[in-house]
């Protein structure tokens, strides 16, 4: 099952130099690879293994995730806003899926 419904929250406006919290949530099964199906066959692992956040091409934050992260992974992290720009967030899973979202920031 691919990742769906990415939701990213951050303040509606921020001043240059301000540190803001960014919260990112996505719907994903985060199948651990530890479980077996009804026939006793192992269910292959399918997790979001990498989350990244960039701002105008510069890396802010990376999370390498393992199967010990809950389904529908939620992450909160911080960002010192350098000025006007665009936030890019990306989730990559074991099935090769990548979800990318872009958000302009309202910098006052």
């Amino acid at each position: 099952m691919p990742a769906t419904k990415p939701r990213v929250r951050f303040p509606e406006q921020a001043a240059a130099g301000e540190i803001i919290e960014i919260k990112a949530l996505i719907t994903h099964v985060m199948e651990t690879g530890n479980r077996k199906d009804a026939e006793g066959q192992p269910i292959p692992r399918n997790i979001i293994h990498t989350f990244t956040a960039h701002y105008d091409g510069d890396l802010i934050f990376t999370a390498e995730l393992g199967s010990g992260i809950s389904a529908n992974p939620f992450l909160s992290f911080f960002f010192r806003v350098p000025g006007p720009g665009e936030l890019w967030v990306s989730w990559k899973d074991d099935e090769g899926g990548e979800t990318v979202e872009r958000y302009p920031l309202n910098v006052v």
Partner: peptide, 22 residues
């Protein structure tokens, strides 16, 4: 290994939160 977080000077603050399985 549950997660590894890489921070940068753009992070501004060394704090991260989420939800894990135990």
């Amino acid at each position: 290994s549950v997660a590894t977080f890489h921070l940068t000077t753009l992070s501004g603050k060394a704090a991260v939160s989420g939800r894990m399985r135990l």
